[in-house]
């Protein structure tokens, strides 16, 4: 449904998006994952024709955004919930958007009901809480009943109830066969929301595929073992066809939990000095994967 090819955006000397190619399919929630400053928002702005790519292009259902007739009926987007005039009421905000794409006024009340803002629709949007603004933004994205939905960091600053609501909504939308593309800088969030992932760092593609594969590869469990009888232990492991790495006189065993490693050592009559399960968190794994691609490192003190 969405197809980016060689997408590149340069701001002066910095490459915000670097030769990015990926595709997003319909009927699934696709997460767009990357650390802050990785180029997610820039990419989404280019999808909507707001920013002009330096090179490459992005197509939605085989067409450029600016070739779409009544674009809001094809693509609904929430890039920033704050893009509302604070003195305009929510209903009036949605009314002008609806009018611009020949969407009937009754649809405005429908989406207001859908996001639960009916009772405050006449109030000025500037007085809304962050969560309400987010709901208003989502109402705007849903106005045209679009096949494609883009959300940029939709759960930022929301309370757990709001986060849950957005997650459910995205699943419902994808379940209806729509294309849902949602960005986040939190892998743990995406692991619960997205079926597919597009991961970028420093504007470059790092991974595209299913979330399950990414999480599995990112958080593979390992066990660290130290023993005075390393050769015997290695033999025992090799016999069981378990893979391991050796460094600093210790083994890092993957694909076997610490219980099994302990039992194996006992059976082989090997003394253990250390048996420690190593479990990388999702965030750690994500940092490892994108580590080289993080734009802003904290300054590390240099030893003198």
């Amino acid at each position: 449904m969405i197809e980016a090819t060689g997408l590149t955006k340069r701001y002066g000397p910095t490459l915000a998006v670097d030769d990015l190619s990926f595709s997003v399919s319909a009927g699934r929630v696709t997460g767009f994952l990357g650390p802050n400053g990785a180029g997610k928002s820039t990419t989404m702005r280019m999808m909507l024709g707001l920013d002009r790519p330096t090179a490459g292009d992005v197509r939605i259902g085989n067409r450029h955004y600016d070739e779409l007739d009544h674009p809001l009926r094809t693509v609904g987007a929430l890039l920033e919930a704050g893009w509302v005039h604070p003195n305009r009421s929510a209903r009036n905000h949605l009314r002008w958007i609806a009018r611009s794409n020949d969407i009937p006024d009754r649809r405005v009340d429908e989406v207001l009901g859908l996001v639960g803002l009916t009772s405050v629709a006449g109030k000025r949007a500037g007085g809304y809480s962050l969560g309400m603004q987010q709901r208003l933004g989502i109402a705007g994205a849903l106005l045209g009943d679009p096949e494609v939905l883009l959300f940029d960091e939709p759960v930022n600053g929301l309370d757990p109830e709001g986060i849950h609501w957005i997650r459910e909504l995205m699943h419902t939308l994808a379940g209806e066969g729509r294309t849902v593309f949602v960005s986040s800088h939190l892998l743990s969030e995406m692991a619960q929301t997205a079926q597919d992932l597009v991961v970028i760092g420093r504007g470059k593609l790092i991974y595209q595929g299913t979330t399950d594969d990414f999480v599995a590869s990112a958080t593979a469990r390992t066990v660290r073992v130290r023993s005075p009888q390393l050769p015997e232990l290695k033999q025992a492991l090799t016999r069981r066809e378990v893979s391991f790495d050796e460094s600093d006189g210790a083994l890092t065993v993957s694909g076997m939990d610490s219980d099994a490693v302990g039992e194996l050592a006992f059976a082989a009559g090997v003394t253990l000095h250390e048996l420690a399960p190593q479990r990388g968190s999702l965030e750690q794994a994500f940092m490892q994967l994108t580590g080289e691609a993080v734009e802003f490192h904290t300054g590390e003190p240099t030893p003198d």
Binding site: G49, D66, P71, A77, G82, S100, N101
Partner: peptide, 18 residues
Amino acid sequence: TTEYRFGTIRTTFQAVPN
């Protein structure tokens, strides 16, 4: 200028790419 300040100009261009 308020459209630029509050970002509604982007919503406008999103709704009307021309």
